[in-house]
Amino acid sequence: MTIKAVLFDFSGTLFRLEHDPSWLADLTDHRGETFDVEARAELMRRMTAPVTLSVDLDDEHLHAWHHRDLDPALHRTVYLEVLRQSGIPHRQQAESLYGRLVDPASWTPYPDTAEVLRRVSGAGLAVGVLSNIAFDIRPAFAALGLDRHVDDFVLSYEVGAIKPDPAVFRLALDRLGVAPGNALMVGDSEEADGGARALGCAFALVEPSPTAKRTDGLLTALREHSVL
């Protein structure tokens, strides 16, 4: 297989929403008490878990959960409910925390993200970012000057399809002008990103570890597939 294009997931692959203590410092529960370290860590996990539902939802919010990456309004609705059930009863606090989640400036690139995008693009390969997401992530790349190394962004809320639906992978490949057998999908979810294999793409799994711990995961994945 000759790789002519690399598709990258966003969250947990190229960037990660890291725990900034200042975001949670003033949060209080229904008793007016601040959250301890473990509770804060759990809040961050619930905000960033890609597929795991950690609270019980009624039918309305369950619908929003399953369609959250197709509609920004549904995304906001269900995450505010998740935060409410996670012990943040004050709407203003929940909205402030949610605002961090959907702010591209809040996301931290992995240490090897810039190098990988530059090298893959510089080698003449097509580069795509394919994400199940409900907000525009392009500013995160533009702020670091990395947008020039990405040929196309395929974001679920813009195209009306989410991974692992084969249609969204096919759309990304069509935009890049590359056949599935000549593409590599890199992502942190076996379930969602691994769906690219149904079309005949190669797939590389990376762990969505904190950025300080996963310093060369992308480089390693691409080397294992002889891309770099």
Score class of each variant (00 low, 15 high):
W65M: 06
R46M: 11
S189I: 05
F203Y: 15
G217S: 10
H19I: 11
L199A: 04
S156I: 03
T48Q: 05
L171H: 05
I3T: 15
V37K: 02
E224R: 13
A64H: 14
L24T: 14
S131R: 11
A39V: 03
P109R: 09
W23F: 12
R119M: 05
R31C: 08
D112V: 02
L219P: 01
D147L: 02
A212T: 09
S11G: 15
D36R: 01
R40E: 15
V6W: 05
D56R: 10
D20S: 08
V82L: 11
P164E: 00
T34D: 06
V102F: 11
D193K: 07
A64I: 11
F8T: 06
I162E: 08
R40A: 11
S54Y: 12
I88W: 08
D136P: 11
M47P: 01
L80Q: 07
L7H: 00
T48P: 06
W65Q: 04
R148A: 02
T113S: 01
L17P: 13
L146P: 10
L228I: 14
L222W: 04
A123I: 03
A172P: 03
L199E: 01
N132L: 02
K213P: 00
L74G: 08
Y98F: 15
R170N: 04
I137C: 06
F15T: 09
E190L: 13
R40Q: 13
D188L: 00
A196C: 14
R148V: 10
A212Q: 12
V154C: 05
D216V: 12
L219I: 10
S226C: 10
M44D: 00
V127N: 07
L205H: 08
T220L: 09
A221R: 04
R16C: 10
V168S: 01
A41M: 08
K163V: 07
L173I: 03
L146G: 02
T28I: 15
H90F: 13
P89E: 14
S22G: 05
A41I: 07
P210Y: 02
D136I: 10
P180I: 01
S226Y: 11
D112I: 11
L7A: 02
I88R: 06
A172C: 13
L101F: 10
T48L: 02
L27M: 15
E115D: 09
N132H: 01
L27A: 09
T211M: 08
D112Y: 11
S22N: 04
V159G: 11
A172I: 01
R84S: 12
L101V: 13
D56Q: 14
V6Y: 05
A167Q: 13
T2W: 04
L219G: 12
